[in-house]
Amino acid sequence: MVNTEVPKMNDIYKLLSQIKDPEIPEINIIELGILRNVEFENNKYKISITPTYSGCPAMKMIENQISEILKNNFYDFEIITNLSPAWTTDWMTDEGKKKLIESGITPPQKNFNSIEFKLNKINCPYCNSVKTILKSEFGSTACKSFYFCENCLTPFDYFKSI
């Protein structure tokens, strides 16, 4: 049985919102801006996704999870990976940013797309202080940098803006 009778976009989005980033399990692929579009065409759902970082190992897992959840719900579908326009942290939703703070990660600032390091002060996700220092631009995963809060003496991740 293949469930293609009526295009049920809301149902599809609801299903796909269950898929989380394996490296930040608090936040789903819609909030992250990875899921770009769902179209119904020729009795098939076309799911467009955009990779975050080129070498991000989570992308393959996310793709597999999309396949699995749609197959289990009898949808006929195709997954399309778009590189352009390139993923930007500006696509992250406000809900997603809120969840990041709750899990101890400072959300990305607006992306200036410039080579200079034009960051405003980064707030600590725990105490909101701006007395923070950058320890390394490369953190526990490709998408994060590593900071330290001098106010509450806690290390934390900042979701890099790209």
């Binding site: 990779p51 970082y53 080129s54 070498g55 991000c56 190992p57 590189l83 490709a142």
Partner: peptide
Amino acid sequence: AQDCLGQATF
């Protein structure tokens, strides 16, 4: 390294 390998894959 991971970025480079990802770009190579593309």
